[in-house]
Design a protein around this nucleic acid. Sequence first.
DNA 1: GTCTATACCGTGATAGAC
DNA 2: GTCTATCACGGTATAGAC
Lengths: 197, 197
Amino acid sequence: MTMPKRDTYTPDSLLAVAVEVFNERGYDGTSMEHLSQAAGISKSSIYHHVRGKEELLHRAVGRALEGLFGILDESGATTGRAVDRLEYVTRRTADVLVEELPYVTLLLRVRGNTGTERWAMERRREFDQRVAALLKAAVAEGDLRADVEPRLATRLLFGMINSVVEWYRPDGRGTAQAEQLADAVVRLAFDGLRIQR
Amino acid sequence: MTMPKRDTYTPDSLLAVAVEVFNERGYDGTSMEHLSQAAGISKSSIYHHVRGKEELLHRAVGRALEGLFGILDESGATTGRAVDRLEYVTRRTADVLVEELPYVTLLLRVRGNTGTERWAMERRREFDQRVAALLKAAVAEGDLRADVEPRLATRLLFGMINSVVEWYRPDGRGTAQAEQLADAVVRLAFDGLRIQR
DNA sequence: GTCTATACCGTGATAGAC
DNA sequence: GTCTATCACGGTATAGAC
């Protein structure tokens, strides 16, 4: 149904270009001129596809948020012991980061200058809180250490996972690479760097 | 020697104001007009103290880098088993993040649009490589797990530590709070979330 | 669907009075 | 050391031809 090769832009194909530039230069550091050069069309042509720069941002972060919240509805996140659900969410978050890398990257860098940015930050907070609740439940069930406050632990956990967008680059090995990454994240987050004695 | 209360700005006191605004709005999202309002002086007055916006950025990230590289020269980072040196660097990095929070925050968000930003990114990479070497040595000495590649482990470790700038806010408990944070980071990074069996 | 031309405003920075 | 006034430029966005 969707045409595989097309010379003209759709809002989505234009979005893909724009998000790359946003990530390279920062949203505020990107002008419509930069976007037009990257897309190979004039500035004004961009306005034929989207209402403006902020709409591009909105579409991008919306897509990222969809991916993340989708995880919480999967059966692995809703059934079983809390610790297993948390591990599932951790692994799947790493997956989504890789699958939707440019979109999630943009989401994680949003600062709050515009309405769209504040909306994105708000929804991100919601997601974090849902996971924090999961982690707290796993502590209560006696599976996770209780000597680190759940909110703090959640933040450090996500700090580790989210940092992936700062350096991960696909190398062509596809799913294998992503799975290896998710494995490493889960190992370090749950069992730490040290060799278990 | 330094006057505790002064009505007029020095480059450093102006820097402190500017860095707050940069962190709130992003460097590119901050105009000289924003800075002048935050400082309570006119745009042109700012140019009496610094050459321009980029000099403020340079001073800020320079200060952050000084703090980080200073750690690597401390005796705790140069003597003893590699695993202990790594733990020392981890703990002290958390300290420096807290002590120099706004400056390090800015450093970690730099994107590479200007010469100053590219210089900062380069120096940051140097720091990361120094720590990666330490982690690799600890694996070789048999103290850290070998089933996660050292570069990957270093990145995830710093992802966790550096995320502190995204949410940490001093609460008046001073050193006690910072120490608690460093403890949590070291515990999670080295021994993980899971209760050790 | 893309272009050229243009409106209009905010930007970083400077000149020179006080 | 701070101000007002001003500059040249680049920003987002629109109008209208093709």
